[in-house]
């Protein structure tokens, strides 16, 4: 039965991974501009050869 403890820890860790992904995306500003990124991906590849620098 004690294996259930390990399973629980593993499952919480996986969930924590998703949580981190969410926090990261918030921090990165993904939810500030929903239009640009969604449309940018549809443009032809030749366009995005320049990486934005900050």
């Amino acid at each position: 039965m004690s294996v259930i403890i390990i399973l629980l820890i593993v499952s919480v860790c996986i969930a924590a991974g998703f949580l981190l992904a969410f926090l990261w995306s918030v921090n990165d500003g993904q939810f500030e501009d929903e239009f640009s990124a969604a449309n940018r991906i549809l443009f032809d590849d030749t366009i995005l050869n320049n990486k934005p620098t900050k």
């Binding site: 500030e32 501009d33 929903e34 239009f35 640009s36 449309n39 940018r40 366009i47 995005l48 320049n50 990486k51 934005p52 620098t53």
Partner: peptide
């Protein structure tokens, strides 16, 4: 985002559409 093709001096442009 293709402004650099018209004005060669532009290095990069990034649009924030919502703002």
């Amino acid at each position: 985002e293709n402004l650099h093709k018209i004005n060669k001096g532009v290095v990069t442009t990034k649009v924030n559409f919502t703002k």
